[in-house]
Design a protein around this nucleic acid. Structure first.
Lengths: 296, 296
DNA sequence: ATTTAAACTGTAACAAAATTACAGTTATTT
DNA sequence: AAATAACTGTAATTTTGTTACAGTTTAAAT
């Protein structure tokens, strides 16, 4: 756990004065690191020894050591403050919180991703003769994005957010087909049916879904990540960010597998796309279309 | 540039004693941050004031301040090493890099977001009678996601990735319409045309696009973020992650604006969606559908 | 090569900051 | 209600960092 998160986690172990210090630090860690122990004590309306005791409870040698830990924690960019949006938050506050939550989700996800599974997926994807991406509701977005990107590998690609289309596709699948099923819950009836049908026809099924879910047990490979989603009603779905990052990883893996010739052809393709743009004249182009997948 | 790199870059500007200090710090920055000025001076075989002067040349207030900068730099350096994927990267390596790049993109984006513009957008969106989301190529995904989420506010919503549909919509727009145009480049002909048409019909046009772009100048409000995208061919588009986070912010803002009654109705809706799921039996539900937008 | 000025370095005095000891206060338990 | 335990702040102490100043080295110019 992050040092700042640790302050929040230990909050109830602090005494009244120590809590005051914690509040000030959590409220604005950034300025806290530039303060002397006297200034911080004044800001928190406590005495200097109280600040010192607070630091010791955080398992640091003393105040300067505490500041060092804090500085490192801030630099890492992970979770600041608390991530719960509440009714009285200003726009500035909840915006910050949502960014923080997104970042900490990615941090968690990174740790929990099984790289050997990723390798396996890249292997499977690079052999596929046809790709079908399926997702319902919010996961449709991820399927959509995935198709956009894999399209440039010149493999036949489809994405469906309609269960009838998915099921039809699955019942016509063959051994060269790869289905990518995306579900945040892993308990969606339709997708489970799609997985069963596709595998019955010898297709490979990749699941972007929790590993212990009913859908997972119907998949050939499961790519799961731990994401601290669903915090409360206000907190939106950060899981999709982790999934989209996973998409980037798979795309990069496949690109590297294809080698330099493929990269050259992608660059050419981008030139074509660029010509659909307006003539810029004097205007400085803000973002040259150099990224892996065609810009827009 | 990173603070540690800066020490190396300024190396030739240092005096002999200062160079000794720089050597010690560069050789092992990690232990340097735990040393007092006296210990560091001893280690570098110089006097304490020399260390202090070294710190001043690095544009820090003094030795403690220098240590803080150093600590932050170390923290950043370890997590975000270099973000460039290269041909010889192992799967583990480039996976880590892509996660790091995504995180650092969100960090940058957060800093550059203009909150007053966000407020304005929430105002506009909460008054809209109809919403139209437009994006081409990779940005279509963001438009898609946005429609998915705004759909639950019970406002008529459309999303288009087809320029004919966009243009048709724009030419039929009226004063209660809000168009949200998403473009990473801000120079896409079709979207600029859509913006012009829609505004000619008195509709409000929100642009998720770079602020100094041709598209931006045709929009009523521009939400722009600085994102260090397009690093190289391998590096995928992290900009969309920032945009999706921005979507979460707008959705949250609107939810808060609607108040507790709306939140209750969302919860009810989720119950309905949940019934389309399989019967779980003994299986522990991995992700209860509590997030703001319906899970999947 | 020698003078001169500029820059550099360290000693020592000083100032600031952090830590500790201790005593008074507030809670909690019996 | 008394006694104990935990908490808090004042003040003394110690540690740490900073500044002033003088001696030394280095470089430039005559």
């Amino acid at each position: 756990m992050n040092f700042i998160e640790l302050i929040g986690a230990n909050y109830n172990l602090f005494s009244r004065s120590e809590k005051k210090v914690a509040d000030v630090v959590l409220n604005d860690p950034h300025t806290a690191i530039s303060l002397s122990i006297a200034s911080l004590a004044k800001l928190a309306n406590v005495s200097e020894p109280s600040v010192h005791r607070f630091c010791q409870k955080m398992n640091t040698k003393g105040y300067p050591d505490f500041k060092l830990h804090l500085a490192q924690s801030i630099a890492k960019g992970t979770t600041f403050s608390n991530l719960h949006v509440d009714e009285n938050d200003s726009t500035e506050n909840f915006s910050k919180k949502i960014f923080d939550a997104s970042i900490s989700t990615l941090n968690e996800a990174r740790k929990s991703l099984d790289i050997s599974k990723v390798k396996k997926c890249i292997d499977v994807l690079s052999c596929a003769k046809r790709l079908t991406f399926c997702g319902l509701g919010a996961s449709a977005t991820v399927a959509h994005d995935m198709m956009n990107k894999f399209f440039y590998f010149n493999i036949p690609c489809n994405y469906f957010e309609d269960s009838v289309m998915m099921l039809t596709s699955a019942s016509n699948a063959n051994i060269d087909d790869v289905f990518i099923l995306i579900s945040r819950s892993g308990i969606t009836k339709e997708l489970i049916e799609v997985a069963k049908l596709a595998r019955a026809r010898a297709a490979t099924v990749i699941g972007l879904t929790p590993s212990n879910s009913p859908l997972a047990s119907e998949c050939s490979i499961v790519l799961s990540m731990q994401t601290p989603d669903d915090m409360d009603v206000y907190m939106p779905t950060a899981t999709r960010l982790a999934q989209l990052t996973l998409v980037d990883i798979l795309v990069t893996g496949l690109t590297l597998r294809r080698g330099p010739q493929f990269i050259a052809s992608i660059k050419k393709l981008k030139e074509v796309i660029r010509s659909t743009r307006i003539n810029l004249g004097d205007h400085t182009q803000p973002k040259p279309a150099l990224s892996h997948v065609v810009a827009n």
